[in-house]
Nucleic acid binder design. Structure first.
Lengths: 358, 358
DNA sequence: CTGTTAGCGCATTCAA
DNA sequence: TTGAATGCGCTAACAG
């Protein structure tokens, strides 16, 4: 038998030849139905299919058109973590909703270590990036900025000329603390998210706060401080426990520790709902009644917050919308440059109540 | 002032010229550090940076090398739904873990309608696809297969020569039903996932079962039937309620309906944990004690299953691992062709117990 | 409606 | 070590 042709890579050229038309016409058959007769188009498509041609090569087309048809999403975190944290999942929901409408694909770029970030961000064939990042020092930030594509940053301090989406964490945290102050609480403790990317667990010192690179965490901390100081409470005396990875288990453990101090706090300010839920479990373990003996307030308003018992008082931030707006900014404004500050809202549920009499 | 050069698109060529070297050498500076002296490399990189060159254009490089550095993930569902369903999120966690290790990006391809699927799947610049799909008739399947790239299909009936990952749903469902039969139950009801992609809500007829295109649902249904028939129970008498979208709210509503029938079922077989949780809420609303008066068994073992009260008896399937294995098959075998059947396990918790005396 | 002409920006032969 | 040439596969002008 005579050697059959290479089965590899049939090109538009081959299809055109087989159909007896020019490359352009073949190309138009795929991309510009209006540029040729319907019947010719059908014939070309049929021949292409029959030859096993799978359509114009996306890479060649991208090079030619300069458009990738995808936006990149950079989480400056490990991906499995991002896919397990309710806040980032809600964010993804919002992003994906807008992408779907725009028929844009979503490229999730791993940046596990700075070396990986270097490579993967550089090689991402996208039309723009959403940078979802909490650590101001993350190397991924500059990698993304270096690409000189449209960028929207989320939850990061605004930068010159770069579109950003965030909420006023400080004001929101202040509101959370004020809620408890109004309920007569004076003995506070704080469950904090990470301040630095070093996986440190435990008591937070003033030095640590000074070195902090997670602006979000810092803002919430300052928000608590604003309210407490205004109420005449000495912030430096308030125990703060850091729980990296937004871990419920860790929060449970640190809350147990906090609740065994004397005098026992009557209110816990948790920087996320997961941390708050950890605190709720700790209270349960110790037989401390919520909200009668202990009030707990969270942050985020994740779906679970309204499902657990007691339901969780928290600060609602529009998680899904944050993703949707970021994607919209990226896809619909050119170049994206406006920054959005999204509203938050205190949601009072069952986990907070009047402070117990002393 | 004399016009400055176009700020647009500096190429490797420009960098080479500015550095006084050839294109090749400039290219090597980025891709083959060992092909030129370290000092020359540094110089070139410095000049490139200074010129505002952001590194080799990913699209051009992809075209040249034929590698995209990304794998495509096609959910044959709306993306916001995929990002809200605990089973697909767990799957994503697994996929992303492996991608991260392999420094491969993950392209999430929207396929909301068949027209979108046509375009987005065709234009995805990826090295292979994971097809996560429940509906055997989804147009996305052929779109993906047409691309003639390595493919791993998940939760879909195996196809000739195509790698697949799934669990033995039928056997697993059978085990769930057998568990309840052993607890002496005789009055059953079923909360079903969708059988067809038509958003139908309510009672399932034999005709509908015959037309079903969601193989998963069908397998679980047959698994229940296997066990019940073996126990001498007439399957055709068992009420089945279909709850599309794996919706807890819908399950609550349909379970309320089921629990108001006479004779009231003593056991509910739910095809997912979310449906089971809906049933639990229904029982709570009606003041029916679980497990004393009603047993409920789920499927999947999502994280919430062990957190709600009563904790949920369920069939555990390795959700995260399913994603990890799919990604591994795609990234590490070439071409992927072996199929994996993953184990399931009955997890007995608090929501099932001995049937109440008649 | 169709074909001809020109690159998109790069990585890789091969020869120097 | 470096440089000159080649084409990856395609689309967009433009002229027939």
């Amino acid at each position: 038998m005579t050697a059959s042709k290479e089965p590899e890579s049939i090109t538009l050229q081959d299809v055109a030849k087989a159909a007896g038309v020019s490359r352009t016409t073949a190309s138009n058959a795929f991309n510009r139905p209006d540029q040729l007769s319907a019947e010719l188009r059908e014939r070309i498509l049929a021949i292409a299919h029959q030859m096993g041609y799978s359509g114009p090569n996306p890479m060649a087309r991208m090079l030619r058109t300069g458009r990738a048809g995808a936006i990149g999403l950079v989480f400056a975190d490990s991906l499995p973590y991002a896919f397990s944290d309710p806040t980032s999942i809600a964010f993804l929901q919002g992003v994906s909703r807008v992408c779907e409408r725009a028929k844009a694909s979503l490229l999730i770029v791993p940046t596990y270590d700075s070396e990986a970030a270097q490579e993967t961000i550089q090689q991402a064939a996208v039309d723009g990036f959403i940078l979802y990042c909490l650590d101001e020092n993350s190397p991924a930030i500059n990698r993304v900025l270096d690409r000189k594509l449209p960028v929207v940053i989320v939850d990061l301090a605004a930068r010159n000329g770069i579109a950003s989406v965030k909420v006023d964490d400080r004001q929101a945290a202040r509101q959370a603390a004020e809620h408890l102050i109004q309920l007569n609480h004076r003995q506070f403790a704080i469950l904090s998210l990470e301040l630095l990317p070093d996986q440190y667990i435990g008591a937070v010192t003033p030095q640590r706060i000074q070195q902090a690179t997670f602006q979000n965490t810092l803002d919430r901390l300052f928000g608590y401080q604003d309210a407490l100081s205004a109420a005449g409470i000495d912030f430096s005396q308030i125990p703060i426990e850091e729980c990296p990875g937004n871990s419920e288990e860790l929060a449970l453990e640190r809350a147990l520790h906090l609740l065994q101090q004397m005098p026992r706090p009557t209110a816990i300010l948790a920087m996320s709902d997961r941390l708050a839920i950890g605190a709720l479990h700790a209270a349960e373990q110790l037989g401390i009644a919520v909200p009668d003996e202990l009030s707990v307030i969270g942050f985020d308003d994740i779906p679970l917050a309204s499902q657990i018992r007691p339901t969780l008082t928290t600060i609602q931030q529009p998680l899904v919308e944050k993703g949707a707006i970021a994607a919209q900014l990226l896809l619909e404004t050119n170049p994206p440059t406006t920054s959005k500050l999204l509203p938050t809202q205190l949601i009072v549920r069952e986990s907070t109540g009047i402070a117990p009499a002393r």
